[in-house]
C-alpha cells in the first residue's frame, strides 16, 4: 500500500476505533440497565417495599432496611474515621525533613488496605469477629469489616478535598486570630465539605453494593433487624437476595432477586448522581474549574 493511502486508512481506523470502543462499553452498560429493568418491572409490586420476607416469598422490607442500616453504620464508623484520617494526612502530618508531605507510612497503609480483596476482609471478619469473639453473624462485625473496606477511600477523597482549599483561607483565619481547631471547623472543613460529602456518598454506594465481605460476617436473615448488634442469627441485606434467590426453584423468590437488583441499582445511581450534582454545584462557584 502506498504510504499516503496507509496513513489515511490508519486515521480512519483510529477514529472509528475510538468510537467503537466507546460503544463497546456503553452498549453493555445500557443493556445491563435495560435487562435489570425488564426482568423486574413485569412482576413489580409496590408492596415489595414494605412487606417482610417469608420463606415462600413476601417482600423485601428486611433486606432493604438491612442495607440502609449497614450504610448508616458505615457512615458513622467509616465516615468519622475516614474524614479524621484524611484531615490528619492533609493538615496535620508533619512534613518530612526532605520537604515531602508527611504521613507516608500511614498513606501507604491506607493504599495497601484498599488493595485488599474484599472477600479476604470478610474472611478475617469471620475468623476474628464472628467466631473469635463469638459475635455470631450479626450487624456489628458486618459494619466493622465494611468500614475497614471503605475507610481508605473516604480518607483519600477527604485528603484530596482538603488539599484543594486555598492556603490563603487558612492564613486569613489565622490572621483573624482564630484558634486552629475553630478555623478547621469554620473555614477549612466548610470549604472542603462538597468534596468530603461526595466522597462519603460514593463510599456509601460502594458499601451498599458490596456482598463478598458480608457473606461471612452478616450471612443472612429473613427477619427485620431486631436491634441486636452482636449475637444475632444473621442479618439481611439486598445484595444477598440478588446473589442467592435467582436460582431457587420458587418463582416468587426469583422475582424478589430481580426486584432487589433493581432497587440496588436505583439506590446506587441516586447516590452517585447526588454526588455528581454536589460536585457540579460547588464547581459553579469556585474560581478555578478543574474540568
Amino acid at each position: 500500500m502506498p504510504r499516503k493511502r496507509r496513513r489515511v486508512v490508519f486515521t480512519v481506523l483510529f477514529r472509528g476505533g475510538t468510537f467503537a470502543a466507546l460503544a463497546l462499553v456503553l452498549a453493555p452498560a445500557a443493556w445491563l440497565l435495560a435487562s435489570v429493568i425488564a426482568k423486574a418491572v413485569p412482576h413489580w409490586r409496590w408492596n415489595v417495599l414494605w412487606t417482610a420476607l417469608t420463606p415462600t416469598g413476601g417482600g423485601l422490607l428486611g433486606p432493604i432496611l438491612g442495607t440502609l442500616i449497614l450504610m448508616a453504620g458505615v457512615l458513622v464508623v467509616a465516615g468519622t474515621v475516614g474524614v479524621l484520617a484524611g484531615l490528619h494526612l492533609a493538615e496535620m502530618a508533619t512534613p518530612r525533613r526532605s520537604g515531602a508531605d508527611g504521613g507516608t507510612v500511614l498513606r501507604m497503609a491506607s493504599d495497601v488496605l484498599s488493595g485488599f480483596p474484599s472477600i479476604v476482609l470478610g474472611y478475617v471478619g469471620y475468623v476474628a469477629l464472628v467466631v473469635g469473639l463469638h459475635w455470631n453473624y450479626s450487624l456489628l462485625p458486618a459494619v466493622l469489616i465494611l468500614s475497614l473496606m471503605v475507610v481508605p477511600y473516604i480518607a483519600k477523597s477527604t485528603e484530596t478535598a482538603l488539599r484543594q482549599v486555598p492556603t490563603a483561607y487558612r492564613e486569613g483565619a489565622e490572621a483573624l486570630g482564630m484558634a486552629t481547631g475553630y478555623s478547621l471547623r469554620k473555614v477549612v472543613l466548610r470549604t472542603a465539605s462538597p468534596g468530603i460529602v461526595t466522597g462519603l456518598l460514593i463510599a456509601l454506594a460502594i458499601a451498599g453494593g458490596e456482598t463478598a465481605p458480608l457473606l461471612f460476617t452478616a450471612e443472612f436473615s429473613r427477619t427485620v433487624w431486631t436491634g441486636a448488634f452482636v449475637h444475632a442469627h444473621g442479618f439481611g441485606y439486598l445484595t444477598y437476595v440478588v446473589y442467592t434467590f435467582w436460582d431457587t426453584p420458587s418463582k416468587s423468590a426469583n422475582y424478589l432477586s430481580y426486584d432487589a437488583a433493581l432497587i440496588l441499582i436505583v439506590m446506587v445511581l441516586v447516590l452517585l448522581v447526588v454526588a455528581r450534582l454536589i460536585v457540579a454545584r460547588s464547581q459553579r462557584y469556585s474560581e478555578g474549574r478543574t474540568r
Binding site: E91, S110, V127, R185
Partner: peptide, 29 residues
Amino acid sequence: RSGETHAWRWGARVAVLLPLAGLLFAVVV
C-alpha cells in the same frame, strides 16, 4: 477553643492509625 484544637488533633491522630491497625490486624489474623 484550644480544647477544640486539641480534640481535632488527637481525634485525627487516632483515626489515622485505625486503618493501619485494621490492616495489621487482618494480616496477623
